[in-house]
Design a protein around this nucleic acid. Sequence first.
DNA 1: GAGTGGTCTAGACCACCTC
DNA 2: AGGTGGTCTAGACCACTCA
Lengths: 269, 269
Amino acid sequence: MSIGRKSMGPGIEPARAADSLHSGVGPGVRRRAGDVLWRQLADLLLARIDEGRLGPGALLPSENQLMEEFGVSRNTVRRALLRLRELGKIDVEQGRGAFVRQPRFLQYTITDRTRFADILAEQGYAPRVQFLEALTCPAPDPVAELLELAPGAPVHFLRAVSDADDVRISTTRIFHPAERFPEMIERRRRDINLASVYRTFGIEDYRRRVTWIEARRPTEEEADLLKQDIFEPVMVTRKVDVDQQGRPIEFSEALWSGSHVRLCIPGAD
Amino acid sequence: MSIGRKSMGPGIEPARAADSLHSGVGPGVRRRAGDVLWRQLADLLLARIDEGRLGPGALLPSENQLMEEFGVSRNTVRRALLRLRELGKIDVEQGRGAFVRQPRFLQYTITDRTRFADILAEQGYAPRVQFLEALTCPAPDPVAELLELAPGAPVHFLRAVSDADDVRISTTRIFHPAERFPEMIERRRRDINLASVYRTFGIEDYRRRVTWIEARRPTEEEADLLKQDIFEPVMVTRKVDVDQQGRPIEFSEALWSGSHVRLCIPGAD
DNA sequence: GAGTGGTCTAGACCACCTC
DNA sequence: AGGTGGTCTAGACCACTCA
């Protein structure tokens, strides 16, 4: 018998039955030492995708078909498909199937003059911002500190999602000092261009003081907002914008779709 | 019966047996509509961690104990624990158990004068770089383009891992133009400070032209090199450094441990 | 050797989508 | 109605760790 040591030791009848039914069926998966089944299956499907035998948008065989083709259990098939989701190679839709993902990246350039609408327009995308939530409340302590406000000073809070050509690219939590910017919420709702909103408050120019970047997994709610797979990581950027006098005017935390956005930080020229 | 619609419909005896054995046991999990078991269990464990009932370094109950405590199958327990790994809340070690992770972040500041050793030293860490692989070969096409070399021109290739105080923080693939920098490999091996190595080639100063940042999941090999969980995302930074005349002298791709590193991009002052 | 997590199987029902 | 993926169970063996 060719049953390996690492999985399904000798004497396991169900495994043997599967082996005898499917051993030698094409370039399949084999029970052998140091090479677990689900990983073999994942690598095999990855190869099909990377070699183009399964092109972008193509429908993968169903889980049942993969079970039969490779003589493994459904859980093993699902473990392999989970890997492909983690790698961002496929999108799985309940009731429909698993599809090879079309890779596409929007490049978002971060400078001290970052302007959301401008960046997207430069790359030929139509930017769209939708505000899901807006209220005025006391600043949480870390926000007050970053905005250089007294603890508990009022801030405007906005939650927004941003699209480029109907592709969801980010969701953002935004804080503005409320006392300095009355009606900020209404004005932002009316005008997508933040720079022009700031001009209505007498701020002709502003710049980014600092940006922090992390990567993590989204919560379910975040994945939902970003219209992305729960297994795909997101980038988190936190930034503080300041006016020409260096006073903070905005703190925001943006979640970027890891599969659709690449950040770019140019060096000084 | 209180069996919900979303899992284990009526008529499933094994599920009922589990219910009758464990229903009403503390603040446990319940089969109900719209709330799957593994997520309930994950949220429950998350609460224990976030409330400090399971502090950093604490050992979680074993999978068998969780099965009994909550009256669910081992696969369901494992699904919940997988979620906690994905969220970076626990580290799982085969044969030992699952431990609450100690959160810690190193801040890595990216500017046009980024110097690896300096950044770590400023934060009080002892930097260490280990070269795993070094060879001279023809440049892959994208690398040749970024280094402004003729296609196939020779480049030095280095693969390294970097530690701060024995915490693995990154792994890097590095390319230098080979014709301009003979003996680069030997000199880098002898001197961790890249700026001083460049000086031996007559380059007094250099700066970063551009940095691209993405987030994705690591391959197993990468997770291994980073000593991090396969389910934890990594940040990928690609950058080009240029000399004072603007000629590219290095292209590198670094993978940063998503759980140990936060990138920082300061605005211009 | 006992206990831990890792892999795998076989089979069940559910929710969702499409015809 | 039939097929898809999502959840869950019960039970098996394996690899690893530690006393």
